[in-house]
Amino acid sequence: MFTYETADQKEVRRFRIAQFNGRMATVKAGESTVTGFVRSVLEQDSTIPPRWTITIIPSAPKEEPKARRSNSRVRPFAEDYF
Rank of each mutant, 00 (worst) to 15 (best):
F82I: 15
E64A: 14
R69W: 03
R75W: 10
G30T: 07
I54Q: 04
A67F: 08
M24F: 14
A25W: 02
I54T: 06
T47Y: 05
E31P: 08
A25Q: 01
D45N: 14
V27P: 04
F37D: 10
M1E: 07
E43D: 04
T3C: 00
T35M: 14
V12P: 07
I56C: 06
M24S: 08
E43F: 01
T35A: 10
Y81L: 14
R51A: 09
P49T: 08
Q9Y: 03
I57Y: 12
P50K: 11
A25P: 04
R75H: 03
K10V: 01
K10R: 12
D80I: 04
Y4W: 11
S70A: 15
T26R: 06
M1N: 10
V41A: 09
P49L: 08
A7P: 00
I48E: 15
Y4R: 04
D45G: 09
S32Y: 02
N21P: 00
E79V: 10
I48M: 05
F20Y: 11
T6R: 12
S40V: 02
A29F: 11
I17N: 05
E79I: 09
T26E: 09
S59V: 15
Q19Y: 00
T3P: 00
G22L: 01
R69C: 02
K28E: 09
P50R: 13
I48K: 14
R39N: 06
T26I: 01
F77E: 15
T47G: 00
R73I: 05
R13P: 00
T35Q: 14
I17P: 01
G36N: 09
V12R: 09
Q44M: 13
P49E: 12
A18G: 01
